[in-house]
Design a protein around this nucleic acid. Sequence first.
DNA 1: TTGTAGGCGTTATCAG
DNA 2: CTGATAACGCCTACAA
Lengths: 348, 348
Amino acid sequence: MASRKEVADLAGVSEATVSRVLNGVGPIKEETRRKVLEASEKLGYVPSAIARSFARSKSGNLGVVLPYVPKAHLFSAYFFSEMLSGIGNKARDSGMDLLVMFRSPGEVMNYADLFRRQKVDACIILGAKDDHGELAAMQQLQEEGHPFCVMNQHFAGESFLEVDADHVEGSRLAVHHLTEQGYRKIAFLNGPDSYSNSQERLLGVQIGLKEAGMELDPDLLLEGNYSRRSGVEAAATIAARLDEIDAVFAANDRMAIGVMHGLRERGIEVQNFPAFVGYDDSDAAEMSVPPLTSVRVPFYEMGELAVSKLIHGSLVGSASTEASGSPSEWPRELLPTELIIRASSIRK
Amino acid sequence: MASRKEVADLAGVSEATVSRVLNGVGPIKEETRRKVLEASEKLGYVPSAIARSFARSKSGNLGVVLPYVPKAHLFSAYFFSEMLSGIGNKARDSGMDLLVMFRSPGEVMNYADLFRRQKVDACIILGAKDDHGELAAMQQLQEEGHPFCVMNQHFAGESFLEVDADHVEGSRLAVHHLTEQGYRKIAFLNGPDSYSNSQERLLGVQIGLKEAGMELDPDLLLEGNYSRRSGVEAAATIAARLDEIDAVFAANDRMAIGVMHGLRERGIEVQNFPAFVGYDDSDAAEMSVPPLTSVRVPFYEMGELAVSKLIHGSLVGSASTEASGSPSEWPRELLPTELIIRASSIRK
DNA sequence: TTGTAGGCGTTATCAG
DNA sequence: CTGATAACGCCTACAA
């Protein structure tokens, strides 16, 4: 493999000049540039990313932390592959590589070490929970001035850079869609309270009901864990009170589908199903029978946005990796959600 | 951030000794070790991964190339997230980090440059196609002696390190399951021929039919592109000849479900559906209505295996990153597939 | 068992 | 506009 020195020799210039040409830095005489490029081409020279990182003290990597994926599949693959694609494409445009890490079940991630070891210049955290260890790890990142972005989770009272969708509005839309059609007895199957997303959905549901002059019946508020199985389990409750329930709004598609399955298992026919609305508008919604009305979340765009913010904020790529912006610089702006209406929620 | 020199000073040893202790290299007096560890702990010293990479000329990264994910979602997110999890966990155990890259639509990947730039020490290629550019890129890798592994795609005549599942057997099992129950008019909806997986499925189908004293009716061999949509389209053909078809085997779950949807759209009732068998045993199979019989592929395990092979083969981690093994060292061993029987294929 | 010193391939600074 | 040259932080013979 050709070295830079060989290129320099062949081009009749110094190594420094080769470097400048290849990095497009500083003013270079056109002829010199051409000579260098030719020599480099001919020799098949490729600069070492490692050496460059070393010299610049920057890895050129964007870290992406993914949640632990248990057998139960609490998290939908759709969710993450969409976000990851968005992140990946945008990162590529910015010349960064993606370093992905899976959070492990027990272990509390020490995010700061990622930076200290210089494996990443910035990072995006997906599927975080609002628990003590997680919060502390992020606060440390913040204190040490490492650029990072949290997706799909809000930490109240903190000034983290966050990217999220408007789940309050998404949930309100879902409920409004139901009440508008005359459904009055709406059960809400939410996810665990430890995700801000769940709390936001609850709020949206309450707002939606209030708009229709109703309020959430505590008996009709159920909690699952975002897995299909938990939906199946919730179906037991729902089946038992089918006469007091005419619609079900679930906090994600997997649970909505789980409930449908559970009802079927109990011999309840589709025509006797309550109306259903899910959330995420994942593949599964489209594939479900009946096709599931669902709240679309722009995961892909959220991924892109997270990268843009990280880079655009001069948090990465600029000379100073110092402090991330102040709270006021990063107001919480939410991407819009949208209701996709399918057969499951249409009044028969 | 504490430097190694400070640690050395505090511990009263040389930097080299600090390095040895932290890397567990060479014989060290227990007391020295303790002193170094203490000093390092107290100062919060964290060695720079970049500098280490530089000194060792190894990035410590395992590259994972993912296919382009089009809007059409030809590839199932399930498929990749499972493989990625398997790869990720195993890689972590081996102290490697994952560098993921998305293939872009037009561009022919130059895999070799990844290595030349030293971004990765080894790489795993997912969702490769058997086309000219792809093959050439891999041959180059092979020639230059870079360790890599191809998953889910076989390149005949090449001696690449490959990890795949036994799709011939998986397909045979699917067909056998159908013929065993007396289904005789079996339509096969395959994927594009440019994936070896499709070819293997076809072979398995032929074997399965032959075992039952039948053979594949060319009119009942359909081709989709692994997307749900292509299944919906195939449903047109199937619906038109519903009297000549009593079972459908699709090369993946998405297409199987697409066919079901297509039939429903045409007003065909579930009780008049042909038997269905899908492939991959993805989430969707379980969520489908009726639940879809499918061939389980151990994607997670395949991911783990790929990493093991790459590492175990001393292809990575050892001093020599020279040639990858000879063909005979890497015979094509296939992970077992398994038929998961659900309602869709049970004789009513 | 430990210290010394050379080298890894770039970038960046400073002269010229 | 271009050429020297000093870091960069760690690993690893080699020497002691």
